[in-house]
């Protein structure tokens, strides 16, 4: 007991101060794409050609990136001859509709969407019980969601809690592209939840199939199965991106 107390003193208080204080992100952090307007050189499709997930498209007004497909690998930025693509420090990537995930060139300052699911916000504003289901993917999305439960993030502070039984859950947070072998278990878990059973798609896989989009062994994400109420882009999303998205869904930021 004495040793445990001593260790406790040694370890100190380590819970992060987000959202009161902005997160410290690493130097090479790849956040929301910053895209230069204007036409690309004729016949250039360097970014499209190198993208592993067909997330970037060249439009008349420069490149557009679907952050729901993007792995934030940065390859497009490296090959663009115009340097029209960069990934900035903006970590607030979550959105409430599929359309909001598409980033294009814009002169206006960007702000994350706020008008989420009103019913969910009113009902879960103080308490959000989440049943996580892993349906394919590489497990990194689960891991970086799971860290929100550690003392470094302590999402319990905001009334967010992971529950074991779907019967106790307000929402289901899905990771992975939904493999053929997980479809039935995913549906059964969703069926076992009290309605309206809100849905969160966490990571490129869950949103669009991610890097596995073209695999016949997967269903290419949640979209075709249940309509998500919150989309959290990234491969995997940074824990702050996930937490910030959840807080916005709850109407707490």
């Amino acid at each position: 007991m004495y040793k445990a107390l001593k260790a406790r003193l040694f370890q100190g208080h380590r819970t992060g101060r987000f959202p009161a204080v902005a997160p410290t992100l690493p130097d090479h952090f790849q956040g929301r794409p910053q895209l230069q307007a204007g036409p690309c050189p004729k016949d250039c499709s360097a970014c499209e050609d190198i993208c592993p997930t067909k997330a970037v498209k060249v439009s008349a007004n420069g490149p557009q990136i679907d952050t729901g497909r993007c792995l934030f690998c940065g390859k497009c930025a490296a090959v663009c001859p115009r340097q029209a693509i960069a990934f900035g420090p903006e970590y607030r990537l979550a959105a409430f509709t599929r359309e909001q995930l598409v980033a294009g060139a814009s002169a206006a300052a960007w702000a994350p969407p706020t008008a989420g699911n009103v019913q969910c916000r009113d009902f879960c504003g103080q308490s959000l019980k989440i049943r996580q289901v892993s349906a394919g993917g590489c497990a990194a999305c689960e891991l970086d969601f799971n860290v929100l439960g550690t003392l470094a993030w302590d999402m319990g502070r905001f009334g967010i809690q992971v529950v074991a039984s779907p019967r106790h859950a307000d929402c289901i947070l899905v990771t992975g592209p939904v493999t053929r072998n997980m479809l039935l278990a995913l549906r059964k878990t969703h069926d076992a939840m009290p309605r309206p059973a809100w849905v969160i798609a966490c990571g490129a896989c869950a949103i669009s199939g991610g890097v596995f989009t073209d695999s016949p062994e997967t269903h290419g994400g949640l979209e075709a199965i249940f309509k998500p109420d919150l989309y959290i882009p990234g491969c995997p999303p940074h824990p702050t991106t996930i937490l910030e998205g959840l807080l916005r869904l709850m109407g707490r930021s």
Binding site: P52, T53, C73, K75, G137, C138, A139, A140, L143, F212
Partner: peptide
């Protein structure tokens, strides 16, 4: 091809 490296990194994300 363009997705090989990403597929391999995502075989097991940890």
């Amino acid at each position: 091809d363009v997705r090989s490296a990403q597929l391999i990194e995502c075989a097991a994300g940890d």
